[in-house]
Amino acid sequence: MTLELLEKLEKKIQNAVDTISLLQMEVEELKSDKEALSKTTEELQFANSKLTEEHQQWQSRLSALVGKIEEVEETM
């Protein structure tokens, strides 16, 4: 009976160790994914800033052109 209990306990401990190992591997994988996503986020934020700046430049240029067109129309 005691040997049987020890074997059951050993089996449960081994299952727990296996589960812990799998969870540790998953945690490492998730950390790696998080780092990759953080890097991608930074790159996208940089690209977004750049596009926003370009948009503002185009907006300014278009406003200047519309102003010139209005000036020409007023003089006609």
Results as ranks from 00 to 15, higher is better:
Met1Glu: 13
Ala64Gly: 02
Glu10Tyr: 08
Gln59Val: 05
Asn48Asp: 05
Asp33Met: 11
Glu10Ala: 06
Leu9Asn: 08
Glu54His: 07
Ile69Asn: 05
Thr52Ala: 13
Val17Met: 05
Gln24Thr: 01
Met25Lys: 15
Glu71His: 08
Leu6Gln: 11
Ile13Gly: 00
Lys12Gln: 12
Val66Met: 05
Leu3Met: 13
Trp58Cys: 00
Ser38Lys: 15
Asn48His: 14
Thr2His: 13
Leu51Gln: 06
Arg61Tyr: 00
Glu70Thr: 03
Asn15Tyr: 01
Leu5Tyr: 14
Val27Asn: 01
Glu73Asp: 10
Gln57Ile: 02
Val17Asn: 04
Gln57His: 12
Lys39Gln: 14
Gln24Glu: 12
Leu37Ala: 10
Leu62Phe: 04
Asp18Ile: 01
Met1Asp: 09
Glu26Trp: 07
His55Lys: 15
Trp58Ser: 00
Leu5Asp: 15
Lys31Ile: 02
Met25Ala: 14
Ser63Gly: 08
Glu43Lys: 07
Glu54Phe: 03
Lys11Cys: 06
Met76Ile: 15
Glu4Phe: 06
Ser63Met: 05
Gln59Ile: 03
Lys12Gly: 02
Gln24His: 06
Met76Asn: 13
Gln24Val: 04
Gln59Leu: 03
Leu30Val: 04
Met1Gln: 13
Ser32Cys: 07
Leu62Thr: 06
Val27Ser: 02
Leu62Asn: 02
Lys50Asn: 06
Glu10Leu: 04
Val66Ser: 02
Thr19Tyr: 06
Leu23Met: 13
Ser63Tyr: 01
Gln56Glu: 10
Lys34Glu: 13
Lys12Glu: 11
Ala36Ser: 15
Thr2Met: 13
Thr75Trp: 09
Leu65Asn: 01
Gln56Asp: 09
Glu71Tyr: 05
Glu73Trp: 03
Glu70Phe: 03
Leu6Lys: 12
Thr52Trp: 09
Glu29Asp: 11
Glu53Asp: 10
Lys11Asp: 04
Ser49Gly: 13
Lys50Met: 08
Ser38Glu: 15
Thr19His: 07
Val72Gln: 02
Ser21Ala: 12
Asn48Gly: 03
Glu71Trp: 05
Thr19Gly: 03
Thr75Gln: 15
